[in-house]
Amino acid sequence: MNDIEQTETLLRKAPRLKVPSGLREKLQAQIVLPRAQDSSRDRASLGLLRRWLPALSLSAFFLACVIAIAVQSNILSGLRRENASLRASGENLEQMRQENLEYQKLRAETQQLERLRQENLELRQLQNEVARLRQELQALSALKAENQRLLTERKIAESRIPADARPEEDPFEAARKKQERINCINNIKQIGLAARMWSNDHGDNLPPDFLTMSNELNSPRVLICPGDTRRSAALTWSEFGAGNVSYEIISPGVSETDPAVVYVRCPIHNNFGLVDGSAQMVDASQHQLVQKNGKWVIGRRPQNGPPSYE
């Protein structure tokens, strides 16, 4: 068995096998053949397809190529047309540039002209306004002369009228003056309070000036009397100066021991602030400031005899 040929011979001599009985009949009974007509028709159609397939595929390929060439030719011609138009426009570029420059120049001139027109219009309006103001000024001068004449006439008329028959003062003006005086009293009260607070830390002596008690006063605005139109209030203590105060300290550095001594005074309303911190609104026709034992106090104005003191 070492020889290959012998091995092959033995293998080829393999005995036949027993086949089960009835298998052939079973297989023969199971035969299901395809219908001849269908197969021949299928084969015919298949054969036709196979016969024409190369030609059809070649035709389809050529058709696709022709379509592709046509599309590309169309695109190419479009690009050529575009190129030609661009080239033509490029030749006119210099001319267009010149035209553009001229256009820009004209545009600038037009704008300048428009601006000048506007200015001219404004100038005319201003001239009209000046003329109108001049007319009003002339009318005002006439009105002033008329006013002056009327005032003169009024004075003459008032001088002729007896004192008892003169009309009363304007009630609004009287109320405004009263309000100013009340506000002045309030200012003096604040000043007196600040001075007393300062004296508590300085041996019961009131401050010699307003700047000394700047820490105790809220604002330098209270140092301006509402009736004082000549002076203006300082906004801060750093801006404060001699021109920013309406009141005057009558007794600088006075001791608190005598409460009736006048410490501060409003020269406009004749209001007084005393050493005890109170504020007094007195009638100037009946009271005045007098010196008693070297100290300033409020005294009665003498009518027929010697003044009496409160």
Partner: peptide, 11 residues
């Protein structure tokens, strides 16, 4: 055809 080939296939 069955008779010709079934033995071979079965074997």
């Amino acid at each position: 055809m069955v008779s010709l080939f079934y033995e071979k296939v079965f074997s």
